[in-house]
C-alpha cells in the first residue's frame, strides 16, 4: 500500500480538529525538510510499487518533466550537503498531491479486478 492509512479525511471533516491540527501538520512538514530540497510530498511516495509506477505513467508530460527536474535538483543539493536557496524551497501552496489521486485510481482498479476475479456468480 503506497499511500498507507490516513486520518486526514476525518480531521478535515471537522472544523475544530482542522484548526488545531493544521499548525502541527505544517510544523511537521517543514521539519521533515523535503520542501527545503525542492520536493513535494508526493515525490516521496515509494515509486518501486507497481501501483505508483502505473500512476506515474498517467501524469501529463509536463508533470512528469517537472517531477524529474525536482529529483535532479534535490539530488544535486544532496551532493552539496546543503539545502537549496530559500527562494527555491517548495511553498505549502506548491506542495500539492499531484500523484495521490492517480494512485488511488489505480488502487481502485486493482480492487475491482480482484473483485471480478473472485466474484461468484449465481443464477437468479
Amino acid at each position: 500500500m503506497p499511500l498507507g492509512p490516513t486520518l486526514a479525511p476525518k480531521v478535515l471533516a471537522s472544523k475544530t480538529l482542522t484548526s488545531w491540527i493544521t499548525p502541527v501538520a505544517n510544523w511537521y512538514a517543514n521539519l521533515a525538510g523535503y520542501r527545503k530540497y525542492g520536493l513535494t510530498y508526493d515525490d516521496l511516495l515509494i515509486e518501486e510499487y507497481e501501483d505508483v509506477q502505473r500512476a506515474i505513467k498517467r501524469l501529463t508530460p509536463r508533470q512528469q518533466y517537472d517531477r524529474a527536474y525536482r529529483f535532479k535538483r534535490a539530488s544535486h543539493a544532496s551532493v552539496l550537503h546543503a539545502p537549496l536557496a530559500k527562494e527555491q524551497w517548495i511553498t505549502p501552496e506548491q506542495d500539492v498531491r499531484y500523484l495521490a489521486p492517480h494512485v488511488r485510481e489505480v488502487e481502485k482498479e486493482d480492487a475491482e479486478r480482484a473483485m471480478w476475479d473472485t466474484a461468484s456468480v449465481s443464477r437468479k
Binding site: 482498479e109 475491482e112 479486478r113 471480478w116 466474484a119 456468480v121
Partner: peptide, 12 residues
C-alpha cells in the same frame, strides 16, 4: 461502469 466491469459482466 469501468472498462473491466463491462468486459467481465458481459462475459458473465
Amino acid at each position: 461502469r469501468t472498462a473491466i466491469g463491462i468486459v467481465r459482466e458481459s462475459e458473465i
